[in-house]
Design a protein around this nucleic acid. Sequence first.
DNA 1: TTATTTTAGTGTATGAATAACACTAAAGTG
DNA 2: CACTTTAGTGTTATTCATACACTAAAATAA
Lengths: 239, 239
Amino acid sequence: MQDERPALYDVSKYQLPAVTVDVVIFSLINRTLHVLLVQRKRWPFQGRWAIPGGFIRLDESLEEAARRELEEETGVRDVYLEQLYTFGDVQRDPRHRVISVAYIALVRADAQTIRASDENSDVRWFPVDHVPAPLAFDHDQILAYALSRLRSKLEYTTLAFQLLPELFSILELKHIYEQILGEKLDKGNFYRKIKEAGILEETPYMREGRGRPTRLWRFRRDRPGDKQFVFRWREDRRE
Amino acid sequence: MQDERPALYDVSKYQLPAVTVDVVIFSLINRTLHVLLVQRKRWPFQGRWAIPGGFIRLDESLEEAARRELEEETGVRDVYLEQLYTFGDVQRDPRHRVISVAYIALVRADAQTIRASDENSDVRWFPVDHVPAPLAFDHDQILAYALSRLRSKLEYTTLAFQLLPELFSILELKHIYEQILGEKLDKGNFYRKIKEAGILEETPYMREGRGRPTRLWRFRRDRPGDKQFVFRWREDRRE
DNA sequence: TTATTTTAGTGTATGAATAACACTAAAGTG
DNA sequence: CACTTTAGTGTTATTCATACACTAAAATAA
């Protein structure tokens, strides 16, 4: 069918915006939810912190661009990645019309290797409630939206497991929920709910410490055929 | 701070993708959920039906582009509009690298005036379960995702009211829910739930027909201060 | 070596939300 | 005037959420 192709499609008659992919990278460090930011070296917003991102290449999909960006900033591959929203206001970048497709990434704290990139003077993890506001561009807005999405998806997906090591205790899992939701949960109800969901697999391992030793569990990847595997912590509060 | 601006930012050193905005336009026609499609006149996918869309201009935001596109196709303004997702696979358009930001629009059946556009030979409403598959490009995928989003948002937003005229009966509202969800709902439970939500305002008007006349209601826009105003039909089934 | 503290994990009572369905109401139609 | 049609209410059983009291098993302090 290539033969039927008429004249070369002339896209140059339109003025084109630039397209970037920005990745809001979350991780749980010292039991606290953190976000990775990069400090800008140059105008505009010189010195301000920003969500890492870069221009998309013509030979990669949006998700591939997000994974590349993620790996450039953290050295991490194979993490949870989800498209968040596309930001396209006319004046969001003073240099040029830039449309940014934002992604959310969740990386395990033990897997990350952080490298500084060429373009930026610094790369750093910040606790989500202590980011150096204001961020560059409209990145405050992007971060706020990412957090809101994270909170709402937490409740009906298995997303929280992306932040845990392979073996974990139920109370550690509960702690992640509390970190992201920003509120305390009832221990007994959490136990019951997560057990009933059938998404955890018991292991023979225990972890000792102060107090009674705790059983370690593993996230069950061989999901049962029925609907069961979607764990839903609570029904209310959505985006 | 403009003075500090160094050399003109040279975006031309990157090859730029084209950016389009596609709008999946839904309406309720003859008590059935329909979607608006346009028939392509030219290569590629000549003759196939497609979701209406067009290139973004440098002086308009994404949402402005979506509203412009919507008005060009339907003549309708001031409708419900929501960003759906951004599709950016490398090969989705054989002409050029094209990134499409997809929107969902809901228009009232009584308001629409449909005009054919220059670029396409035809514009037509199709019932959502009788679209002329396959659509052009990756539009089957976009439409499927739009429907899935519509279904899941229906349950925790007041989105269904966008498809109704100003005055409507409770059973008409229930019918919309059934159309979009694709299943029957219990009459008694629907009455109770919608009344308790406090989002409807009783009017003195009735509509006569066969059987007992029905009371007409209006969507309450002066939302009460508390959380009540989000109507949630059911808790389960999400995107 | 026994009491105390700490963390882990279970059991249960109460009230709220849901679902199924039987019932009453008010109009038109044969 | 019985019957059909559409509208709208009431009732009940069951499931689910919440709060919180309880038991369990270890380290640590006396």
